[in-house]
Design a protein around this nucleic acid. Sequence first.
RNA 1: GUGGAUGUAGCUCAGUUGGUUAGAGCAUUGGUUUGUGGUUCCAGAGGUCGCGGGUUCGAAUCCCGUCUUCCACCCCA
Length: 435
Amino acid sequence: MKIVKGFRDILPYDTGNSDTSFAWTTTTDQLRQIMKTYNFQEIITPVIEHDSVFKTGIGEDTDIVSKEMYEFVLERDSSTVSKEKILKYCLRPEGTAPIIRSVIENSLSKIKSLNKLFYLGPMFRYERSQKGRYRMFHQIGAELIGSDEILYEVEILNLAKEILTSLNIDNYTFQINSIGNNESLKNISKAVSNFGRKNKDSIEEKDYKILNKNPLRFLDKAVHNYNFKDIPKTIDYLDKKSLKRFNDLTKILDSFNFKYSINNQLVRGIDYYNDLVFEVTSSNLGAQDALLAGGRYDSLMGKFGADESKSIGFAAGIERLILAMKSKNQASNSIDFFIVYQQEEMIEESLRLALRLREVGLSIEVDLLRRSFTKQIKSADKSLAENIIIIGKDNFNNGTIVVKNMASGIEEIVSLKNNIDFFLKKTKGTPNEKK
RNA sequence: GUGGAUGUAGCUCAGUUGGUUAGAGCAUUGGUUUGUGGUUCCAGAGGUCGCGGGUUCGAAUCCCGUCUUCCACCCCA
């Protein structure tokens, strides 16, 4: 029995690395809270989709679709249905296309109050795994649907930045760019090809191949390996409208004191973007350094055959956010009360008390292995219990118990009955106090 | 898909030029001591040495293959 290659378990205990289930859930809780402050509402879609969602959504020629997607057909279907009718499924490699599929299918774009959506869940891509890159990874993403109003850009960028600052991530650069409309993209592509041919002699063969296959990718990635001057800039190929949008945006961002850098060679690996694209990279990460990325996608709904609905969004990699966090969310295993009993005949009383205290939300542990009194206290100590409750033979008969604070050593004798308030007060202000 | 490294107890690692029943620390279990814990001491459990071949009288150690993980290319979040 072995876990599938490129996949991983997230374990509860801390073995020195920070990737525990505790760090995971506290981080995702935090992310959901941020979404709430921007009034984005969670949408949960299946991890399986028809392959057409991505083939038409993000483009058949992209690497994501052509080589990284988990595709499958069901054996059952393939034996009973004619070849043309076999349904092809896939594990979703990204979040935006399924969200848009759902928005169309459920007519969500007709309800103005539902135009701010976020998702959080696993994505799948068949890649060689390495630091910050797994075959199943998690993204949180936000989509703002229904307008090309420039304030949509502002809202999305502010939200993206809020995630970084809230999680206490630094050492990142926020890069933005505009790639204009379809036509400007074509012109940029042409310009890069020409530029490449002109400089063929000084470009390595590997990069030249990329240039021929996908000039835009060459512009995005490879061109910075060289010291070229006069590298084509996307901004020189924008039409008036796109250029104005970009200038308007930067003006507003400046007025907010939003720190960004313009990268006129930034394009993205997914086909549906137009105008604004952005990407945040972190120097804390290694080779897989993209923390979050996104952009505007005004034509995606049209591609799906629905009425055009202009939208913008982004996605962040949760594994990478956690990697980049300066101070990790450390697990605190501490519990409120560890109930120890001095003799076996007190076990039932201990369990009854545990039930009552758990009912009011306190975290309680009782030794279930009938171990010796000393062993119980030792394990209470290891469990980082704030207090222990001693059900001992001296007090048992007159209906009292001893409550001992483990840090101070102070003991109090209290009645066994009707003392819930006492226990609640005892834990006030501790990390285990909930709500 | 391409390169380079890695793989010994739950964890971190030792293991000498191939030589008996493979070791340590931490963790774990039982006991002990400390008035009812963080301490001390004693004992125990736990390993197909990633897997499969080969060389050899003999392999954790050498050779080949394979898988995993990691790092980079690539791609991306």
